[in-house]
Design a protein around this nucleic acid. Sequence first.
DNA 1: TAACGAATATGTAACGTTTCATATCGAAAA
DNA 2: TTTTCGATATGAAACGTTACATATTCGTTA
Lengths: 329, 329
Amino acid sequence: MKQRDSAPTMKDVAREAGVALGTVSKVFNDIPVGEDYRKRVEEAARRLGYQVNSYARGLKTNRTCSAALILPDITHPFFSALAQGVCSALAARGYRTILSITAYDRSAEQKCIQMVQQNKVDGIIGLTYNPELEIDPRLPYVSIDRYFSPSVPCVASDNFGGGQLAAEKLLELGCTRPLFLRIGSRVPGESDKRGDGFESAFRQRGMACAALRLNDEDGLAPFRDFLAGHMDGGRLAFDGIFCVNDALAVRVRDFLTELGLRVPEDVQLIGFDGLRHFATGDLYCSTIVQPVGRLAETSVDLLLREDRSNLPSLVCLPVTYAAGGTTKE
Amino acid sequence: MKQRDSAPTMKDVAREAGVALGTVSKVFNDIPVGEDYRKRVEEAARRLGYQVNSYARGLKTNRTCSAALILPDITHPFFSALAQGVCSALAARGYRTILSITAYDRSAEQKCIQMVQQNKVDGIIGLTYNPELEIDPRLPYVSIDRYFSPSVPCVASDNFGGGQLAAEKLLELGCTRPLFLRIGSRVPGESDKRGDGFESAFRQRGMACAALRLNDEDGLAPFRDFLAGHMDGGRLAFDGIFCVNDALAVRVRDFLTELGLRVPEDVQLIGFDGLRHFATGDLYCSTIVQPVGRLAETSVDLLLREDRSNLPSLVCLPVTYAAGGTTKE
DNA sequence: TAACGAATATGTAACGTTTCATATCGAAAA
DNA sequence: TTTTCGATATGAAACGTTACATATTCGTTA
């Protein structure tokens, strides 16, 4: 008696159904086949518990129905939301997600890309920091939030517009002494445009705008010192602060409280991202919210688009303002 | 002139290096080979930019160096931390992670498992809710936090011990009127033991312990009503509350504040999970912290263990207590 | 010098698919 | 009845590897 310890193959199904190998293949590829044949094959496959071997298929077709998602850190709520969106959007189109985490390490990013290339994924969606990544032009690549070159499509929020929006909101709410605070990596990225948009909006109205831009390695202490240094008789030199992201806004709010200032009565504060508290669903602060879901879907659309001849090099998605307690409205 | 639009294969490398196909294979599998041959092959591979095709390899060897991770929702900070840990642990051992998200949908869980089985992963790590999942016994499976059967290893925190620990802490801090609050899915899981441990600790000391256990679909309102119903002249009938997780603890804290109670002066509150604020890194509340990193590593260890003959059916990992502002210490 | 054996390179046969050229079958046209 | 044609089933070749049986090489021993 034949031992059946390994999974059944198409050959087994063909024998069981009494049809040819090619016919079985057609059935599993939705290629027209006589109704009676199709039934016989499906029956036999069910009896045997047959499942197609996607490695054999991938070898033959050079298509694997899988895409890689490269992220710096899935622990951050923005990235995890993005991951969720990308994973769902891929799944909805029959694609698997191969997840790689780089921990913000540029050489890890390069290694991920190589590993993932070798694994013959059909494409890569990457949110990376290494500005000189080498990516195989044969392999579809979509970059999130980081512009590489005209030939690599980049999907991002409308960062510039978001900065403008923050400025307009603060003006609307009566602010006249704005400040922009930024912390981030040393490499230039799309999120730099947030401050540009903010400052530009004030400049257009003939108003000056203060700013302090730091890098990750500087830590947060300089922000506290800066704020403390701009106190004058219990009053802060600024009445509206725009922070490059919600994480910074949350910390800055603490600093302001420490200085005896009330938010939003004395100073109004706007962040960027639109993160929500995991338990209550509340915003952490007033903020410019990024369209995470659309970011994810758009990336997948672009990655899987059949016609890869004229893709956009940058797609900016609209952001919105949401009040979250650190502004008067 | 030959067009080289498709990736180079071992055959190309063999020709370029002037050696046999098998020799190239040996080089890429770390099988001993003459030093000069190895050099020639490596040179040739570099010149051609050769990378092994893991689909062909997977087809031949039936090993794919990839594992699936099935989670209900990667947006929740506990799950995302787990995902990060599993992904890193797998990567450290040369394995890719295929991520599947089920959105707590039991039929989606089953579908994920099938899809992933068909993709010939080497194993599955799953955190699922469907108690009657059908999993192919040929395929290594490790369950996190959910016990299936003796033959499916389950990795979990020491939930019972964590409940006891919470009880001991509250006693230590002077509580005499304990309450246990639980919200969760209807299916029995390891986390049910939290309440058991908590109550058992009080019972052992001859003390009674109140409890309210609800399911997800009940929502949180009943908790508020329950608490409000146990107020007597500005005083709550309980002075120490243990919540089944941090998310609930955070909400309960809000309810208590609404009722005019001070935390921790009037009531002390302990959660479970050990989640931290994404921006500040602070705990949301006093809590029993789960060893997320070890949970992930242990799962991977178990999944990839060579000898699969006598695996444990349940591994419980130790939890710790951490004060986070909702207890007196 | 011949014969042997250890070590290692070679080449071929799978692995489970898809694809394509060929064979088969019926029905319609002559 | 014979021919032709369209439709569709068949079977073999190929995808890029690994593994195994065979061939080759070279240092040792008789």
